[in-house]
Design a protein around this nucleic acid. Sequence first.
DNA 1: AAGCTTGGTTGACATGTGTCTACTAGGTTG
DNA 2: CAACCTAGTAGACACATGTCAACCAAGCTT
Lengths: 199, 199
Amino acid sequence: MSPRQRLTPADRRAQLLAVGARLFAARPYDDVLMEEVAQEAGVSRALLYRHFPGKHALFAAVYQQAADRLLAETRLAPADSLVEQLVQGMDVHLDYFTANRNAVLAANRVLAGDPVIQSIMTNELDALRARLLAALPLPDDSAREAVSAVVKSWLVFVQVLCVDWLIRETCSRPQLRDICVGSLLGALRPLLAEDPAGA
Amino acid sequence: MSPRQRLTPADRRAQLLAVGARLFAARPYDDVLMEEVAQEAGVSRALLYRHFPGKHALFAAVYQQAADRLLAETRLAPADSLVEQLVQGMDVHLDYFTANRNAVLAANRVLAGDPVIQSIMTNELDALRARLLAALPLPDDSAREAVSAVVKSWLVFVQVLCVDWLIRETCSRPQLRDICVGSLLGALRPLLAEDPAGA
DNA sequence: AAGCTTGGTTGACATGTGTCTACTAGGTTG
DNA sequence: CAACCTAGTAGACACATGTCAACCAAGCTT
């Protein structure tokens, strides 16, 4: 029926990935059918399963691509103040969350159990943590470990809060941003003070 | 086949719940079949679906029951020191997590997207937060809001860390417990005037 | 042009969830 | 005892994921 065009595996994979990205962004995970992905790509279901072992794997590949792009697009300008950098970083990420609502919710809820999704997220959080650590003014290298732990837990907290916000809209977007930035600054204050009198 | 015993809806529901609890504790969510639950209860699949609208609902009911029991069994003895209470509370919860591994993982990963599971967890965390707030020595009532926010974020952090630990076993059990307790004490130290550790 | 490799199709099958309809059989009530 | 309400059964169906075997055809090679 269809003019059956023969592509290289890489090209076909990229095409399927693009179709998947479009559909997973447009609708919730469960509402996207493999049949549909194949159909929109003008391809048989069997071929789709040849390139991706399953629906989870297809989504994981889509999500990995999105995560890579997000990380690449959110380079902080080191000229600004720390607060400025945090605010800008949060804004970019919140833009991404709202634009890719369905995909973010699928990754964090429906597919949170998938080990592949797990590792993609872990890697993303690790990259963000390294970036933040590099941007933070460490007073003492011995504080590095403690700060790293705080940053890691803060990233988890932010992620949980953002996902919750996507569902329940418990506050305004600027409020959410300020809560996140404020909580990190508050958590870091006792660690970054010149004189750690409280500790 | 079976001598078809007729029970009241409440009794039947309780029986199905018990069977579900046993199976969901023994094996991962996806490996437990509705057919199987019905069979073990000596009942038809249709009847199971009459009492619980779907597999998610059955699991949610099982999980709700377990959460209620856990909350009921973990009453802190107010006589001990704060650190003692935290350590004991963590120990009880870690016992529960390791004993109900599969159910906890299902709730936090496979079914994390289910709104019913969501609300069960939210309620459980809220109850724990209220309990902790009551046990904490608040120096000033104006600090209450800040402490509440710290406790809430800490509970999320602990939960995430514990689920991660169930999968990856990144450290020993006492270590995990001490990390959690230590992080809360560290986060609270700048907020609480009196020495909460009593050490 | 013949042939081979490999991208791609077709259609049938297996399994699990969830729905529905018609039927069967306890136990209470008149 | 008979009627009736309702717990429970039987089994077919719809639908989605995932597997498989046989086949077809594009386009490189020789």
